[in-house]
Simulated assay, not measured.
Amino acid sequence: MTENHSLSMYKYNTWANNTLLKHLKQLPEGICDTNIKSVFPSIIDTLIHIYIIDRGWYSILTKEYRSDDYETIKASVDRLVAETKDISLKDLEKKQQLLAADVQSFIESHDMNYRDTFSGVSMTYGEVFIHIVNHGTYHRGNITAMLYQLDQKGVPTDYGVYLYYATQA
């Protein structure tokens, strides 16, 4: 494992997302688009939410826009929502993989102890990545619950499972 904790955690997050997407692609067609009563109306909507939030944080960290520029953030979210409307799981996976590569490069080239203020909250870059990983974990859990509502099985994406597989490679 790398000594850069933010990088380790983000690699876990990427592995967990990829593991879930691989599992979802093996399920019966249409499962991800099925409307159910949950946190989000469907699995694909939950995946899109994860992507949009991750993309938003990346845009803030790379200074594409400020965290307190709510009009620009809203415009960006609206653009991403339109861009991902009716997206296939395969195309969303490609977008997620491109973003993951960009984020990993950011982590490798920036000081994770650098402190900045995001909408009035002082956080280090490392703390932002803890937040991103926690956010993804939370919603992957939502997706597991959604899968059980649809009489499908989930797939383990816990950090301990990741560490087990990482040591086997």
Rank of each mutant, 00 (worst) to 15 (best):
S105P: 06
S6C: 05
G141W: 04
K85Y: 11
Q152T: 00
K90V: 11
L99M: 10
V81I: 14
Y51S: 00
Q97C: 10
T2F: 08
N134G: 14
K22A: 12
Y148L: 11
S59P: 04
V103C: 15
G126M: 03
S38Q: 09
L150I: 00
L89I: 00
I52C: 08
I60D: 15
D86K: 06
Y114W: 11
I31C: 13
Y164V: 03
L20A: 15
K25G: 09
E93D: 14
W15F: 02
N142Q: 08
I87Q: 09
K74P: 05
R140E: 08
D102T: 03
K11P: 02
D116G: 12
K11F: 02
Y138R: 14
H49N: 02
T2W: 07
A82Q: 12
R115F: 06
T144L: 10
D86I: 04
T157A: 12
R140G: 06
D111E: 09
N13R: 03
F106G: 04
L20H: 11
A82N: 15
I43L: 03
E108N: 08
F129V: 00
T157M: 13
L147H: 14
L147F: 13
W57R: 00
R115K: 14
K153N: 15
W57T: 01
K94W: 05
C32V: 14
D86Y: 11
M146H: 01
A75F: 08
E64R: 06
I43G: 08
H49A: 02
T34W: 04
M1N: 09
Y65T: 00
S38N: 15
E83R: 10
F118N: 01
S88Q: 04
T46Q: 03
T62V: 03
K95I: 00
Y12R: 00
D158C: 10
A101Y: 11
H139P: 05
L61S: 12
K153F: 15
Y164C: 07
A75I: 04
L99Y: 12
K74M: 08
L24N: 07
E29C: 09
V133S: 08
D68T: 02
V39I: 05
I107Y: 02
V161G: 10
M146A: 02
Y12E: 07
L20V: 14
H23P: 13
Y162Q: 08
I44Q: 01
R115E: 15
V81S: 12
K22L: 09
R66T: 11
V81A: 12
T46V: 01
M1S: 12
L150P: 04
T144S: 12
D91A: 01
